[in-house]
């Protein structure tokens, strides 16, 4: 038996609800995601039933399962309009990394393999040019980034291998918060010095 995983590593080239929502235009989606809509209708395009059943495809089925469950899961998926994308993405390998040293045109980083976590960490040198312009200001010692190799399958049947780097973004600290951190550090220093 072979199953072909089409998990969330693939971007489907259509309007996609992960599952339990109607496949709708974005404007309509708001309706199904409104609060207290645990009884929303959703589309079952191919019922999982015995063959020979008279139940037809694409029939709206009232969702009435597990209503006695308490608590219910919080997440109710929304539709994602990726219709503007004319390709499908399949992740081949993913890493997280942190920058060790920044040079003129490149930087040294330690990367951990997320696809095969048993692989040991590796030191790599990456070109700053490979980092999108919007993220280059974030390349500093210690900064964290996500690096992935993907296949992009276009509508015309072309398959391209590409890589993407995205740096982790943290909220900028306000002056108050920085002040608070300094105060805390001073307090800890004082305790240590008095011991």
């Amino acid at each position: 038996m072979i199953t072909l995983p089409l998990n969330s590593e693939s971007v489907m080239d259509q309007m996609v609800t992960p599952q339990s929502g109607n496949v709708l235009m974005a404007r309509s989606v708001l309706r199904i995601s409104a609060p207290d809509t645990s009884d929303e209708n959703y589309l079952v395009s191919s019922p999982w039933i015995d063959e020979g059943s008279t139940d037809g495809p694409n029939k709206n089925v009232h969702r009435d399962i597990q209503l006695d469950l308490d608590p219910k899961p919080v997440v109710r998926p929304l539709a994602l309009d990726i219709s503007k994308q004319n390709f499908r993405v399949k992740a081949l390998q993913r890493w997280t990394g942190h920058v060790e040293r920044v040079m003129a045109d490149s930087f040294i980083a330690i990367v951990s393999d997320l696809t095969n976590p048993s692989n040991p960490d590796e030191e790599v040198e990456l070109d700053i040019e490979d980092v999108p312009l919007g993220d280059r200001a974030l390349i500093t010692m210690g900064s964290v980034f996500y690096w992935s190799m993907v296949y992009r399958d276009t509508k015309s049947g072309q398959r391209e291998k590409s890589e993407s780097i995205r740096f982790a973004r943290q909220p900028r600290l306000t002056e108050d918060v920085v002040e608070e951190i300094y105060h805390e550090a001073d307090a800890i220093t004082a305790i240590l010095e008095s011991a």
């Binding site: 969330s8 590593e9 995601s33 998926p77 993405v89 992740a91 996500y146 993907v150 995205r166």
Partner: peptide, 16 residues
């Protein structure tokens, strides 16, 4: 007003 939902269908963006 009572719910926030953030989602992506691209596994390369789970970290971000």
């Amino acid at each position: 007003q009572n719910r926030l939902l953030l989602q992506s269908i691209d596994a390369t963006h789970y970290g971000p």
